[in-house]
């Protein structure tokens, strides 16, 4: 049986752990709120962007742009894996990595070379451990980022695609569905398929107005399409960031509750032990007195 002191020490240490998990929960909830605000701020831009794209894509010949062209032979495939930089957020990163690794295995089975582009430390570490080819990894980028990061990652894969280093590219990120649900999403981004672009929140049927286009529909599309990729990447970054914080909140909530349970059962053990010790001492005293009397 554990000694009284041991049990006491254990209770004290668990209480300290609980303080930490509780603090982390609160930090995560503040960060989640900020991440959600950023998603809100991004929404008007995204909605308008999709609307413009739909207006334009309808009237143009898709074969005009290199990013739309589906290559006959696909030799290399790029996976852009977006994860968090920090752990302690439950199975969030594990799920993302699992999704990416599964995709990589499928592509490799088709005889394609797989190249990784990692945003976030966790994914980069995992890809390295599994000895995948990593072209570029952004570590410690998820803490604070803005659209520039989306642009950078987007430009990188677009350049690689145009140079012929990549024949297709897929984005793996954590979609924020609700506080309790975050799921890995595997989204093919290159070559582009704009007609599958999901409808923006604006949703209204574009009135068939006669627009004047400057420079031209094709010229505008050539500007819009690369941006579309950046918008998708940025959206992936925003969603992953919100998901990460939500996942951490849930994980820390669980941990706090587990601490409570443990403190309860240890306190019970402590009291039982204490009582046993008292009973034993009493027995000794009574036994001693009996011996003297006897």
């Amino acid at each position: 049986m554990a000694s009284l002191r041991d049990v006491q020490n254990k209770i004290a240490s668990i209480k300290k752990t609980k303080q930490i998990t509780k603090a982390m929960n609160m930090v995560a909830s503040a960060k989640l709120r900020r991440a959600q605000e950023r998603i809100e701020r991004f929404r008007p831009y995204a909605a308008k962007f999709y609307e413009m794209l739909r207006e334009l894509a309808g009237g143009a010949d898709p074969s005009v742009h290199p990013l739309l062209e589906v290559r006959e032979e696909i030799k290399t495939t790029g996976i852009v894996l977006v994860t968090s930089d920090r752990g302690l957020c439950g199975s969030f990163n594990t799920n993302l990595i699992k999704a990416a690794v599964k995709l990589a295995a499928e592509k490799a089975a088709e005889g394609k070379t797989v190249k990784f582009y990692c945003v976030g430390k966790k994914g980069a570490d995992a890809a390295k451990k599994l000895e995948h080819e990593i072209v570029k990894s952004y570590r410690d980028a998820m803490g604070s980022f803005d659209f520039t990061l989306g642009m950078e990652v987007g430009n990188m894969i677009i350049d690689a695609y145009i140079r012929g280093e990549l024949d297709e590219a897929t984005l793996v990120y954590g979609e924020f569905i609700s506080m309790a649900r975050q799921e890995p999403v595997v989204l093919p981004v290159l070559p582009l398929a704009p007609e599958e672009a999901e409808p923006g929140e604006g949703g209204e049927a574009a009135a068939s107005q006669e627009f004047i286009y400057e420079p031209s529909v094709e010229g505008l599309l050539a500007e819009l399409l690369p941006r579309f990729i950046k918008v998708q990447v940025y959206r992936g970054l925003l969603d992953t960031s919100a998901s990460e914080h939500a996942a951490r909140m849930a994980a820390m909530d669980n941990a706090t509750r587990a601490c409570d349970d443990m403190t309860d059962s240890l306190t019970l053990l402590y009291n039982k032990t204490r009582q046993a010790v008292i009973t034993k001492e009493l027995m000794d005293i009574v036994g001693g007195a009996e011996a003297l009397n006897g």
Binding site: M52, L56, I212, E214, P215, L220, E223
Partner: peptide
């Protein structure tokens, strides 16, 4: 600053889309 040069827009302009 349009892609093809400066342009001005006054109220009730016709529909126009420019880079």
């Amino acid at each position: 600053p349009g892609a093809l040069g400066e342009f001005g827009v006054l109220p009730n302009h016709i529909p126009f889309l420019s880079a």
